[in-house]
Nucleic acid binder design. Sequence first.
DNA 1: GCCAACGTTGGC
DNA 2: GCCAACGTTGGC
Length: 137
Amino acid sequence: MKYWLLKSEPDVYPWSKLVADGRGKWDGVRNHTAKLNLQAMKKGDRAFFYHSNIGKEIVGTMEIVREAYPDTSAEKGAWFMVDVAPLKEAAKPLTLAEIKTLPELAGMALLKYSRLSVQPVAPAEWKAICKRIGVPA
DNA sequence: GCCAACGTTGGC
DNA sequence: GCCAACGTTGGC
């Protein structure tokens, strides 16, 4: 199983909406590196939901429930989307500011490639973050 | 094929 | 609101 981090601006698509819907389509990704990550996802992989811009924190965990398929929001070209379902809400969200202070998370893609909206998370990082936010790894 | 200009993302 | 990072576009 692989681990990922997906970013969304909460005023566009917040965690609360995903929870209310029970399942969501992760579309609109228009960056090639992010696209490759979407295509590498397997059903059953896990991902963090990160609120960018507002909040700047990891707010919950998700499961990939449908592997990459053509993005229905794309006018042309081969962009892809996946479907996700919420797993656990963070008992205590982990902010970007906190992530920067933790040595075990210093290598995160989130810090190095701040603009990448779909990025991989190392297993050790996944475990450390789950512990911090109070959800089962 | 190079590179300057420009647009977008996202943190501050 | 500003700015850094970085991807894309277009002139040459």
